[in-house]
């Protein structure tokens, strides 16, 4: 069975669906890019996959022994974080909260895991720095390290490169590709179709017309050709 199977899923708010009948599955090791226009419902889909909100109808099935608290999530930035007095170490450690369950304090293994992941993302030297004083790229690495504390299996990334300059963007993509090669399944929302086509193994396009398939199939499809042309033009 696939890691995630999405059956007849309709998304929306207050039981008004604006994306209907999504069907696709994600296998272990896939690199799925979700593309589409602004406001087409990409974030909503991700929140529904995370059970942060109820689907209007349909089901999300989890396979391969994946548990709900084994998903790593990198959200779009919220306002609260902008002036939050928190150190990098505190934030990455909070990624272990799912493992910790109702136990009030983090144990040695969890603190070690946080260090390992900070090292992996190259932010260990920033451990005692204040999050809000870091550059955008550094902040995203910190949040990625936190997401890695929550999962060994699958990462959901919501526009991880939004607002980053080109050099930092390509570093971020390389980092994510590296994680994918280590066997972590990636589900990423992206504005940037060129990058999606370059890195992804599968593409889900949502909007007026829905497409799901491998990268090669997408490039051959009408939706893909049209969207690609539009992005190049504008």
């Amino acid at each position: 069975m696939a890691l995630l199977t999405i059956q007849d899923l309709s998304l929306g708010y207050d039981s008004v669906a604006f994306v209907e009948n999504l069907n696709f599955s994600v296998n272990t090791g896939d690199y799925l890019c979700i593309v589409g226009e602004n406001g087409s419902g990409k974030t909503t889909l991700m929140k529904t996959l995370l059970h942060l909100q109820e689907p209007v109808s349909g089901q999300i099935l989890m396979g391969d022994g994946l548990k709900q608290n084994e998903i790593g999530y990198l959200p779009q930035q919220t306002i609260v974080q902008k002036d939050f007095p928190a150190s990098v170490g505190e934030i990455v450690l909070s990624g272990c909260q799912g493992r910790c369950g109702i136990r009030p304090f983090y144990n040695k293994a969890e603190k070690h895991l946080a260090e390992t992941n900070m090292n992996r993302m190259g932010v260990l030297p920033l451990k005692d720095r204040c999050y809000r004083e870091l550059s955008g790229g550094q902040q995203q690495r910190v949040l990625l390290a936190r997401a890695l504390c929550a999962t060994q299996k699958v990462l959901l990334l919501d526009e991880p490169v939004a607002g980053l300059d080109p050099k930092v963007t390509s570093e971020m993509y390389d980092l994510i590709e590296g994680l994918n090669q280590e066997g972590i399944t990636i589900i990423m929302i992206s504005h940037d179709l060129a990058a999606a086509i370059r890195y992804a193994s599968h593409i889900l396009h949502i909007g007026a017309s829905v497409f799901y398939g491998t990268r090669e199939e997408y490039l051959e499809s009408d939706v893909g050709k049209f969207f690609l042309m539009r992005q190049k033009g504008g």
């Binding site: 995370l50 608290n69 999530y73 919220t78 609260v80 910790c100 009030p104």
Partner: peptide, 22 residues
């Protein structure tokens, strides 16, 4: 004191906390 870590997590990023099963 008992819920310090959870209060921190929920204050810093509620959606991440929910996604992590808190």
């Amino acid at each position: 004191l008992l819920f310090y870590n959870k209060i921190f997590a929920v204050t810093f990023d509620e959606n991440f906390s929910k996604a992590a099963g808190t």
